[in-house]
């Protein structure tokens, strides 16, 4: 929590940098081996959205996503990082195409894994059709890459969470790491409240939002495989761990994932609140889970052991 000084090592800087607060570019810089990142279609190429001008909205030179390659412990990886502050990290035509292209390149090469740093509210309203198409293309590209033997790892801990089409893509990944402030869902809190009423879901009750969609709950449910503390170094270590753990992809694995989800629904389908699920899991004082420090939570989650390493 104390300010870093200039002469610290990259690992120390990554440890003291909040993943949640960092920009997409800072996340990549500190996640990868120092100086190894090379960007594809960088901002100087000005591949901006063709749609935003029509709506008199400002563009961003990278259209809100940074894609490229770099090294993790000396081994090559492809990376994509969404910038959650530009239009809520939402998918548009160019934004989506950059990720699709990266995944297709990974499929062709076959041996280089992909890390996707999600930070998105879903599809950009102003380019909805192109954005929805992009989501479908990316989901297909993820599955094709995985079928070709590529590990696709999602890292989720940004301020915009991983919502809408982002949540669908995350569900297609080989494995996910999530931090406490990270959120994963399809419908966002405001969408649920608008459609089902404030009695169903009070989007301003942030404790409710996080215990329903937040990182700790997603880890306990097995939707995410690893829980990272909110700093870039922890995400780097989580990515390393997942790359080591993820096994080969096959139809059997998909069937196992389907069975895991069905079983989860049978077991917890009647629960009204996340706390009920945690209690059902046998967690003592389940209501204190949101207050647990990261190390204690990781110990608890490992004891519960509900991950999907035999599935996905």
């Amino acid at each position: 929590m104390i300010a870093p000084l200039k002469d610290i090592t990259p690992a120390e800087r990554a440890r003291s940098t909040s993943f949640n607060e960092a920009s997409a570019r800072t996340r990549l810089e500190l996640l990868l081996d120092a100086g190894s990142f090379v960007e594809f279609i960088g901002p100087e190429q000005r591949e901006v959205s063709p749609h935003l001008k029509i709506f008199d909205l400002p563009e961003q030179f990278d259209d809100g996503i940074v894609v490229g390659r770099g090294n993790l412990d000396g081994s090559p990886v492809f990376v994509a990082a969404q910038e959650g502050r530009f239009m809520g990290g939402a998918f548009g035509e160019v934004h989506g195409a950059k990720l699709t292209g990266l995944l297709r390149a990974a499929r062709q090469i076959g041996s280089i894994p992909v890390l996707i740093l999600f930070d998105t509210g879903g599809v950009r309203l102003q380019e909805a059709n192109a954005g929805e198409l992009a989501i479908a293309e990316i989901m297909r590209a993820v599955m094709e890459a995985r079928s070709a033997g590529v590990k696709v790892i999602g890292l989720i801990g940004g301020r915009s969470g991983c919502y809408g089409g982002g949540g669908l893509i995350a569900g297609c990944c080989s494995a996910l790491a999530v931090s406490e402030p990270g959120r994963i869902a399809v419908s966002g809190p405001e969408v649920i409240e608008t459609n089902r009423g404030v009695e169903e879901f009070d989007s301003r009750d942030r404790a409710l939002v996080w215990r329903t969609m937040g990182g700790k709950h997603r880890r306990l449910l097995g939707a995410a495989d690893v829980f990272a503390d909110d700093n870039v170094q922890d995400f780097r270590e989580a990515a390393r761990e997942l790359l080591r753990l993820v096994g080969p992809f096959s139809l059997d694995r998909l069937r196992a994932e389907q069975e895991r989800l069905a079983q989860r629904l049978r077991r917890f389908g009647a629960c009204e609140d996340a706390v009920d699920i945690w209690t059902e899991e046998g967690i003592p004082d389940a209501e204190t889970v949101p207050e647990l420090p990261a190390d204690q939570f990781v110990a608890l989650a490992n004891r519960i052991g509900r991950t999907s390493r035999d599935a996905r």
Binding site: M1, A3, N20, P290
Partner: peptide, 28 residues
């Protein structure tokens, strides 16, 4: 990075868990 706490969560940590912020300030 100069701020001793950069989030409400950091304040909770500094307080040794004694500070219990209202729900509207949480992101956990």
């Amino acid at each position: 990075s100069l701020l001793a706490a950069r989030s409400i969560k950091d304040l909770v940590r500094w307080s040794g868990g004694l500070y219990a912020p209202p729900s509207k300030f949480r992101n956990w």
